[in-house]
């Protein structure tokens, strides 16, 4: 490492509101520490903008530790930046080089309209969850441990799906703006466990219908979602979603 300070050119998408056309603004930022996270770098940019009397750049974030799924930036054409299995908040400036130009865009998908600058509205995901991403049958009080035996490989599969933090990177990275990875993670997580099995058929049919209603694209098995997913949710869950759907429409009474 020659230096731990970077001079960067930032091309940031600025849009004053949902109706505004928006466009790129270029900012020079010097002396960026390589130890900063990407969001801290944007904080520094915003302090500079505020000091200059300009509007700060609006961007989403909450936990800043990779678990909430709020941060959502397209960085040089890659959802959450260049690293695999990493959220924007966990991305560090050491991944960039001195003098580099960084283009920062919001997620682009019709179901995720831009609210302002880099912030998009992801309530489409909430409506998909509301259509079936829960267990509503009465499963009684919390059972004693080991009362409902679940093989550990099944637990692992369910847990891998449950790792989804609902960030929307799969939609953002997909050439079809498809939400299939997100929906498949939610369907898989419940369909593999005993408590979720009771409603598996209605759930998959309702969630697919809700996904279509929101206007997401369809899947062409390009697997770009899997590569972009910070929780490394696998496309094997999409195959499970397809199986669940086929079973539901062919064999279920509901």
């Amino acid at each position: 490492m020659s230096s731990d300070k970077l001079n960067l050119t930032l091309r940031v998408w600025r849009q004053s509101g949902p109706e505004d056309h928006g466009g790129f603004q270029t900012y020079k930022l010097s002396g960026v520490s390589t130890h900063m996270s990407f969001l801290e770098m944007l904080d520094v940019l915003n302090e500079k903008l505020i000091a200059e009397g300009e509007e700060p750049v609006a961007f989403d974030h909450d936990c800043r530790e990779g678990i909430c799924g709020m941060c959502s930036l397209m960085i040089n054409g890659q959802a959450h930046g260049p690293d695999r299995g990493t959220t924007t908040c966990q991305l560090h400036m050491r991944r960039f080089t001195d003098g580099q130009t960084i283009t920062i865009e919001p997620w682009r998908a019709v179901p995720f309209p831009v609210v302002r600058d880099l912030v998009v509205n992801r309530s489409a995901f909430d409506r998909v969850i509301q259509s079936g991403g829960y267990v509503s049958v009465n499963t009684g009080n919390a059972p004693d441990g080991n009362c409902i035996p679940v093989p550990s490989s099944t637990q692992e599969t369910a847990m891998d799906a449950a790792a989804c933090i609902g960030c929307g990177a799969c939609v953002a990275a997909c050439k079809n703006a498809s939400a299939m990875l997100f929906v498949s993670a939610k369907v898989s997580q419940l369909a593999t466990l005993p408590q979720g099995k009771a409603e598996r058929s209605q759930r998959v049919v309702n969630m697919v219908a809700a996904m279509d209603r929101e206007g997401f694209g369809s899947c062409t098995n390009t697997s770009e979602c899997e590569a972009a997913c910070p929780a490394e949710v696998s496309v094997s869950h999409i195959a499970r979603l397809n199986r669940e759907y086929s079973k539901a429409i062919l064999f279920s009474d509901t």
Binding site: M74, G77, R84, N176, G215
Partner: peptide, 24 residues
């Protein structure tokens, strides 16, 4: 699929290391 994204990205890069053909 076309209707699901009306505004294109300015910069686009695959994370699958597919450099010969566009993503996928």
């Amino acid at each position: 699929n076309r209707l699901a994204r009306r505004t294109a990205y300015d910069v686009r890069e695959s994370k699958q290391g597919l450099s010969v053909l566009p993503s996928g």
